[in-house]
């Protein structure tokens, strides 16, 4: 018999970006362990709808950990205390019977709350638009031996590319800095020959955009990498700093 748990869900409710928010408690009973965190919220929302109350707004899309839409700051951790997974991959069996589960939106000036648990993450799109791409068409995938890339470099680029842009790094950072995101996006291209050509321009443009949008200065606490659902390494930030400093010294 699958274990079921009862708990209190303390959820942040906020009417819109300008209203003052508050916490609301909901008693949850008989939730099975194989329910995902988002399914649990669906169950609660269906109940709220039946009771003619306003359902809780939260972001979600693919529910398999690759789209980067789900967020939620659960019990003091972005994407919950489990680590290495997104909120949609978090299961209720990880929580204690009778506990209080606190759910908050990302809190950062760069990500203002839209409603309840949903925040506006278009700032990340704007940073990407500032240079997070290769500006020429590089054609179809080459033969594996046409452009030689050491395995180690390919792996590093792939690890950086695993960033899904969910914003957990900013949510975890006491400085509201988006350096882990920007560094992952810069690294995934700077490491490979197709992206290397524009590396300097890209680093400068993306860092400038990040700052313009009000994100903070990185102080290397490492909270971002520790909370990243895709385990993006802090070393990427060193690489971004290196690219940026090199570019500025060349100017």
């Amino acid at each position: 018999m699958e274990k079921t748990i009862n708990f209190t869900l303390r959820v942040w409710r906020q009417k819109d970006a300008h209203s003052k928010g508050y916490f609301e408690d909901h008693k949850m009973e008989g939730i099975t362990g194989d329910t995902s965190f988002l399914e649990m919220l669906d169950i609660l929302n269906e109940r709220l709808v039946r009771e003619h109350k306003e359902p809780i707004v939260f972001d979600h899309d693919c529910r398999e950990g690759i789209c980067g839409m789900c967020s939620l700051y659960v019990n003091g951790h972005p994407h919950g205390p489990e680590g290495g997974c997104t909120t949609c991959q978090l299961f209720m069996r990880k929580f204690e019977n009778g506990s209080v589960i606190t759910v908050e939106p990302w809190r950062s000036a760069g990500f203002p709350v839209i409603k309840d648990l949903m925040v506006d993450r278009t700032a990340y799109d704007k940073i990407m638009q500032a240079g997070g791409y290769v500006s020429v068409n590089t054609g179809a995938a080459q033969d594996a031996n046409a452009i030689l890339i050491p395995k180690k470099v390919a792996d590093e680029a792939m690890d950086a590319a695993s960033c899904i842009g969910c914003g957990a790094c900013v949510a975890a950072c006491k400085n509201g800095s988006a350096m882990l995101f920007v560094s992952a996006k810069v690294s995934q291209l700077a490491l490979l020959p197709q992206g290397k050509v524009e590396a300097a321009r890209r680093a400068k443009a993306m860092v400038a955009k990040m700052e313009e949008l009000g994100f903070g200065n990185c102080t290397n606490t490492g909270a971002c990498a520790a909370e990243c659902p895709k385990c993006v390494s802090l070393s990427n930030i060193a690489r971004l700093n290196r690219e940026f400093i090199k570019a500025k010294l060349k100017d």
């Binding site: 606190t102 908050e104 509201g176 009000g214 200065n217």
Partner: peptide, 9 residues
Amino acid sequence: ARGNVRYAV
């Protein structure tokens, strides 16, 4: 950059 509202937990 962190904003005015702090996390409860």
